[in-house]
Design a protein around this nucleic acid. Structure first.
Lengths: 151, 151
DNA sequence: TTAATTGCAAACATTTTGCAGGTTC
DNA sequence: GAACCTGCAAAATGTTTGCAATTAA
């Protein structure tokens, strides 16, 4: 029910905009089809957090024409290729973060507002030594807050 | 498809076991119905991470008789009363952590194994000053790893 | 006996899938 | 023209809800 909205903090990882998007995709080993370019343009224009539905609606509103299946396919593809980061904050839906630089999140459960926190401000201390059998995939830090006043 | 399994690290928050569960519920302002006691016994017997489905299956296997609706109702109730903590790690389903003491998580995306990390080992440094309008609800730190070797 | 709780089944929302038609190199 | 993509609609989850029957204080 909450509307998670992006609060840009740092520029998009790839720094890709407009025509450059095609290059970004190619250099990531992704065939730059019309739909993928459309989606990438929308996503990487600025750092933001979007659900699949929000993305689809946004592209629609911008006059784009991409099917739901392709949106899901493409989001998964971008995540696998490291262009996008999944953010699991709301059990109802997955959010996709077009800022892939290392950073953390501040989430207001009441407003649904999701904002970035730089690792300069908040850091994780004392990472455990990982067994040789595994490798670090990522560190997800979410600071959850809510508006003051009890139920 | 992964099976998230618990790796106990610290004893259950309430330290409740057997008959004491009834007291735990009462002192939390929860009417101790047969089903809730059943669920609480199962959950708080030890620190663990369970999905709703796993909980239901576990109770079933133990000879208990609780409906799916009641499982979901009760999990939500326990979370609202602070007896349980939601863990959002897998977009497919919510996990519930019966260890409500402050701690972090280590998640192996390949095996689905989820284990606790003490705040003595890994700590978050430099919490931002929060505006007066909000209060801290919690800090979720997940260290994601996967087995070595590429796709 | 009045309010709260349970269980069933149906309803929901998000995400995935099968497959026919298109596109690309 | 062979492999890959797209879009539609249907299917597959996990979770919630409506409501009648049951239980509890």
């Amino acid at each position: 029910m909450n509307d998670a909205e992006a609060t840009a903090a740092t520029p998009p990882a790839g720094g890709a905009r407009d025509g450059t998007v095609r290059e970004l995709l190619k250099s990531s080993g992704i065939a730059p089809t019309a739909q993928r370019v459309e989606i990438a343009r929308f996503l990487f224009h600025r750092a933001q957090h979007l659900s699949a539905e929000q993305l689809l609606a946004g592209i629609d509103a911008a006059g784009g024409r991409v099917s739901k299946a392709t949106v899901y396919n493409t989001l998964g593809l971008f995540v696998r290729h490291g262009l996008l980061r999944e953010v699991l904050i709301d059990p109802e839906r997955v959010f996709y973060d077009s800022n892939t630089a290392r950073h953390h999140h501040l989430y207001n459960a009441d407003t649904g507002e999701l904002s970035d926190i730089s690792t300069d401000d908040v850091a994780v201390q004392g990472l455990p030594a990982l067994p040789d059998s595994v490798e670090l995939e990522g560190i997800d830090l979410v600071i959850r807050v809510r508006n003051r006043q009890r139920d």
